[in-house]
Design a protein around this nucleic acid. Sequence first.
RNA 1: GCGUCGGUGGUAGAGUGGUCAAUUACAACAGACUGUAAAUCUGUCGCCUUCGGGCUACGAAGGUUCGAAUCCUUCCCGACGCA
Length: 465
Amino acid sequence: MIFKIEKKLKDGLGRVGIITTPHGDILTPAFVAVGTKATVKSLNPEQVRDAGTQVVLGNTYHLYLQPGDEIVRDAGGIGNFMNWRRNDGGIAPTMTDSGGFQVFSLGAAYGKDISKITKITDPSLLIPERFDDSDAPRLAKIGQDGVSFKSHLDGSIHYITPEKSIQIQHNLGADIIFAFDECTSPTEDSKYQGEALERTHRWAERSLREHQKLLTQKQKHSQDLLLRNVDRSSASVSDPALFGIVQGGREESLRKQSAKIISEINVEGKYFDGFGIGGSFAKEDMSTAVKWVNEILPEDKPRHLLGIGEPEDLFMGIENGVDLFDCVLPTRLGRNGTIYTKKGKIIITNAKFRNDLGPIEDDCGCYVCSAPEDFFSGSLSVSADTALPLGSSACETPRKETSGTPRYSRAYIAHLFHGKEMLAGTLASIHNLYFIVNLVKKIRQSILDDKFFEFKEEFLKGYLR
RNA sequence: GCGUCGGUGGUAGAGUGGUCAAUUACAACAGACUGUAAAUCUGUCGCCUUCGGGCUACGAAGGUUCGAAUCCUUCCCGACGCA
């Protein structure tokens, strides 16, 4: 993996770049579609690609349980297994998460109304005593060496260590993989955040060590094959890049400490190839946390803000030096009937949309909103590389005069949701994914055009109204 | 005409003397969702309310009872059976 910075934001840490992976380039900043179980829920790979997506992220924990990482390995890696392809037909870039998030979602957050984003206005969540619930049922239990998971599928127990996570991820064969970490709950107190952070740092080092070990083994194996005159190209999937993960909850000192340690960790001179910023935030101080971290992380390596993806968060992250985002929101909200528009989110099942025959957005170029002839004639650009209409300013939404009738109306999509039709979630997800992926592309373009701050102000004025 | 069973909130369908403004499901309405235990979950769902409560309700009208959706009488309506 190679990361090249093309242009930097004048005021701020932001940058535009290109990540070159064994399966193609990723123009950054980029939004990564989440495909936990080797599928972006409700979408086929062509729909994901046509929404402008460049990379898909799968999950170690889920794919290890089902169908099993060895099957994915034997299928030629996750990209091949799920038939995730670029426009030119080649396998497209993929990443896998380490299972660290499941330490949180199946552990401290299990069965509770806790999300990784805290509302600072809810101080009751932050009283540690209230959360002394160590006996509460949970599917993930943390030990010093690793985490035991009780499968949510069949109840079987699985012990995941950093080494195990990396082994699984090597089998899954994504281009970018992550160190095994502990994503802490925002409700944990500062003492616990400190302990968890130390654990995450130890696990990071072990992840990197295992990664290097597996790469060396693989190298040796290919050399053997070469010596025996075996075609090397069929030997294995390409080498993955390993990202370390910065944690530290909401505290400045812990965040800064983590950024420093994670960027300095090395095994025999080999460092992490990039960095994930993980963990829990209060919405209100996420930007400062990201800034603290990115001021410390080495500039020449990509940074991925894990699991973040509301429009305002994307502007914040990019301004503060984030290159990659992934988030379940476009697809989860889509399946649940919430749809992104430039004027904010709408809940399409609301009564007022039942007879609304207009498109979700009349100037949207996605498959759902555009008129059939516009989409298929290519007058709306939808290729993965140029989802922005060429020559248009990133700050202006290209006003596309469609033929009047959208392919699918609000009323129709509302009808599909009310009727519980599968297509409902699909259409809403296509639009939402296009909306978010292309927002990031527009932000990228706005930096290239030296119009980032204007674009940010204009967009958020309409969106957060 | 006689007999039997039945008529409950938008719908289906519980309840069969007090704990019933009435279980539940669906529908409806509103909301939540940030490295996916998620095509999921939550709230409201007779009228009024100073949120304490008040009022009108279980086909209709009477009655029994301290108290009735629940028991009795008559009537109306429906299904089935016999003429």
